[in-house]
Write a protein that binds this DNA or RNA. Structure first.
Lengths: 110, 110
DNA sequence: ATCCTTTACCAAGACTGTCTAGGCATCCAA
DNA sequence: TTGGATGCCTAGACAGTCTTGGTAAAGGAT
């Protein structure tokens, strides 16, 4: 059997996470759930991709973490966007639009 | 300085190459040129990405290679789509549309 | 009380695809 | 005869995702 393509487009997870945090802070699994739900179940975020991405983003200063308690009364690490994160999000959206436009032009057949 | 994003969306090169070969056989550099041109200079394909991709595609049986002579009278390896390659192209386009729709839904803000 | 399931976080290593940075051969013009 | 342009090619670094494993705590069921 052929190997399946990943559930994500490589390199877009950071943008998706920032977007999921745009309006409210959330904890890790809630971010993954939110992305899946916002995408109408098209996208699926594996935990093994999620947590490394969260560290990346935090290390870049785009999100900030804080321990809290989830709706289910469990210890959870809440992330929220920083000002730099908002800037980054808008830069990534712009980049995404630009590149996908390029790809769409190619697919449209020149 | 921040690191620049790549000129391509990781994982889309195979699709772009297949698309560039959809109507005519071409040699390697001409494929890269064609993608760049079709995308209005938005996308740029490095040789170090191009050739490995061509081997991949040939190994999968999606393209077939043959030595020839370029317009500039140079030895060049011409690639053309196979029947399986056409199928693959359409599968990849479908997958691309699906995933980008998911991403666009997320970006639209849920 | 004890177990089981669910929630939540985390890590190690494999894998894949792109990029950087080289190199070789040939053609043609200066 | 030298140098630029064309065309193919490779090795190794690198980044991001996936697979697979784990821990801990809450809450319900037995």
């Amino acid at each position: 059997m052929a190997k399946e393509k990943p559930d994500l487009v490589y390199g877009t997870l950071d943008m998706l996470i920032l977007k999921a945090l745009q309006y409210d802070p959330r904890h890790g699994l809630a971010i993954a759930d939110r992305i899946q739900q916002m995408s109408n179940d098209i996208l699926h975020v594996e935990q093994g991709s999620l947590y490394p991405a969260l560290y990346r983003l935090e290390a870049q200063g785009w999100i900030k973490a804080e321990w809290g308690v989830s709706d289910n009364n469990r210890k959870a690490r809440y992330y929220k966007l920083t000002a730099a994160g908002r800037k980054q999000l808008s830069a990534e959206e712009e980049h995404w639009l630009r590149i996908t436009k390029g790809i769409d032009l190619v697919l449209a057949g020149g």
